[in-house]
Write a protein that binds this DNA or RNA. Structure first.
Length: 324
DNA sequence: CACTTGACCTGTCCGC
DNA sequence: TGCGGACAGGTCAAGT
């Protein structure tokens, strides 16, 4: 079963995009017939709205903006979903329903390996762990059942994540959405754009600036550390002290790190489908993240961990000198 | 307005 | 062995 943060990792852009691709393949076109949810924190809409705008509607598309999933429905509403750190969406396609007695509906748990549409965790697990334990479990917040009997579980141990039904037309007007910076894997994210966006945070550390979703959308703690290592910039360096040429290097590192992880996310998703375990997870090729004490792949010095911007931060002290 | 810190949560790990 | 505290980190609210 799930056992904590070093087996679970927080979804950032590549993980959420992987989830999006999985869901897009698996649930578009499916009709919702039942929704159950418990904590209002995880799903604050009143049940009347759920009945009116989610139940009996069909999934028409799954989009992503930054780390937010946008599950569009035929009702004109969108199920806006943020996994935060420990959220995961698990799609179970082949749990069958017991219908023998007509009243005791019960899925055959684990009769087949579930297909994960993309879980939040992608690293550091034990090869023998089952990918998904019997669901629902105590972290299950929402269960969406489709007409064909397949189900989507929203699990979130720490209840930071949420799902929320919002009129599709209003989604871009959500404050959070309006503030977001550019998508780093879109063509309009150029080095010049990054430089310009960073000017709003020029008196803070580059790490804090990269975590600021209004500067660039979708970067979290892992990719901030990895891209800064790639660009050989110390995370505590003030933005105003970084030369434009270094910003340009950082820009290309952000893109290559995200793309590399996205490739791995795809392979991880395939592994889930094939019930092959968690081989090929991101952390097997992370250069610094959670690798304190290990040798820097570039120079061999031991990687160290420190705190920058209130976050655990991993650097090579030789490749990323102070005031780089 | 720019910036920092604490709160939100649950579960695990570490030191005593 | 039990227990308290630190820690994991995305985002927002509150404070400087």
């Amino acid at each position: 079963m799930f056992s904590g943060y070093n087996e679970y990792d927080m979804p950032e852009l590549p993980e959420v995009e992987t989830v999006r691709r999985g869901l897009s393949r698996l649930i578009v076109g499916k009709k919702v017939i039942h929704v159950s949810f418990d904590t209002p924190k995880s799903f604050p809409n009143p049940s009347g709205e759920v009945d009116q705008f989610l139940v009996s509607t069909t999934v028409t598309a799954v989009h992503r903006r930054a780390k937010v999933l946008l599950i569009e429905l035929s009702s004109g509403y969108t199920l806006v979903t943020h996994l935060k750190m420990t959220g995961q969406l698990v799609y179970i396609a082949n749990g069958r329903w017991h219908m023998e007695d007509g009243k005791n509906k019960k899925p055959i748990a684990n009769s087949h390996m579930p297909i994960a549409a993309g879980e939040a965790r992608f690293g550091g697990g034990h090869p023998n762990d089952s990918l998904v334990g019997e669901l629902p479990d105590k972290s299950t917040r929402v269960i969406i059942t489709f007409e064909d009997g397949t189900r989507l579980f929203f699990n979130d141990q720490r209840k930071f994540g949420w799902m929320r039904l919002i009129p599709t037309i209003s989604v871009p007007e959500i404050d959070f959405m309006k503030r977001l910076g550019p998508e780093p894997l879109e063509d309009d994210f150029t080095a010049e754009v990054l430089y310009e966006r960073l000017q709003r945070r020029k008196n803070t550390s580059i790490k804090a600036a990269l975590l600021d979703q209004s500067v660039v959308a979708g970067i979290g703690n892992i990719y901030a550390d990895e891209s800064l290592w790639g660009a050989q910039i110390h995370p505590a360096t003030l933005v105003r002290d970084i030369l434009p040429s270094a910003i340009s290097t950082l820009h290309s590192e952000i893109i290559s790190v995200l793309k590399l992880s996205l490739d791995k996310g795809g392979s991880t998703d395939k592994n889930y489908v094939d019930a092959e375990g968690k081989k090929g997870s991101y952390l097997t090729f992370a250069n610094v993240f959670r690798r304190e004490g290990q040798a820097c792949p570039r120079c061999g010095r031991a990687i160290i961990k420190l705190r920058v911007a209130g976050r655990g931060t991993h650097i090579c002290p030789q490749c990323q000198p102070i005031l780089g």
